[in-house]
Design a protein around this nucleic acid. Structure first.
Length: 273
DNA sequence: TGAATTGTTATCGT
DNA sequence: AACGATAACAATTC
């Protein structure tokens, strides 16, 4: 379930491996994941050098020379691997990039939800995504405008990649807890100080998660340590780190959601709107 | 066995 | 009509 911090960690790990290498061949073992088509992808990618590996929201982006980009979205269970020479191919291997010097990049994906896309033009993707929460341009005013333009519940809105890029289920719950906001609060009804708290909470949560190399809850993403520092996600029944009351689980928009009902009241204690 | 997971798309309701 | 909420879907694991 890689979200922004996990994707960022993966990009940092793979950047020095992939950048500067030239693709000799590409192979897909589940062609439905490859867009616009396997033939097109292979044609546009082979012989090109990876100039830069970076991240936009939860997308891994590879800039190619001369021209074009490929994107990898890991969705639920996608993983990248950098095998040693002669290493046996793993189960669930879905795609292979062979580089000219013999190095390889593996895409492993149990649930086959991941996507591998070639595009000439990144603008449609970038425009379809909301702002990067860690960019300097993600100001209080920007967030306030996003929230005020909609009348949606906070959690589904923050999960919506077109509103804000990179948050998933875990970090939305964590950010809302840090901001002391209930996930069902309506986006257009936050006071200015609550918007400021939400921005700070989103950024501090993501920064801490990146510092800890992301959250590892299962075999899909093994190397993070943030799971030991989550305050609400997956802690239902356990005591709140702030007030000691029990963390509760509920469902919001078909998503498992974790809150401290005392620290995150639906209505403000002071009655402010 | 059913619940859980992401993001897209279709559909229903206001 | 536009927006928001909801359901279905792709596929697999535990």
């Amino acid at each position: 379930m890689p979200e922004l911090p996990e994707v960022e960690t993966i990009v940092r790990e793979f950047r020095p491996r992939v950048e500067g290498r030239t693709i000799r061949a590409f192979r897909s073992l589940w062609r439905r994941q490859v867009q616009p088509s396997l033939a097109m992808f292979r044609r546009r990618v082979t012989g090109k050098r990876v100039e830069r590996l970076w991240r936009r929201g939860k997308f891994i982006v590879a800039d190619l020379a001369p021209g074009g980009h490929f994107l990898i979205h890991l969705r639920m269970s996608g993983r990248l691997e950098w095998p040693a020479a002669g290493e046996a191919e793993p189960r669930r291997l879905r795609a292979v990039w062979d580089f000219e010097d013999g190095a390889r990049l593996w895409f492993v994906d149990a649930r086959k939800f991941g996507r591998i896309v070639y595009t000439e033009n990144l603008a449609p993707l970038t425009n379809a995504l909301g702002p990067e929460p860690l960019d300097a341009s993600f100001t209080c005013a920007r967030l306030a405008a996003l929230l005020a333009a909609r009348r949606r519940r906070l959690k589904p809105l923050l999960l919506d990649q077109a509103t804000l890029a990179g948050l998933g289920n875990i970090y939305v719950d964590e950010a809302l807890f840090r901001a002391r906001l209930h996930p069902l609060r309506r986006s257009d009804q936050l006071a200015p100080d609550e918007v400021g708290a939400l921005r700070r909470a989103i950024r501090s949560t993501l920064r801490e998660a990146i510092r800890r190399n992301g959250t590892s809850l299962d075999w899909i993403y093994p190397s993070g340590r943030m799971q030991d520092y989550l305050r609400v996600y997956g802690r239902d029944g356990a005591p709140c780190v702030e007030c000691g009351g029990p963390i509760e689980a509920l469902r919001v928009g078909q998503r498992g959601t974790h809150i401290c009902p005392r620290c995150q009241p639906l209505r403000r204690a002071d009655g402010a709107p």
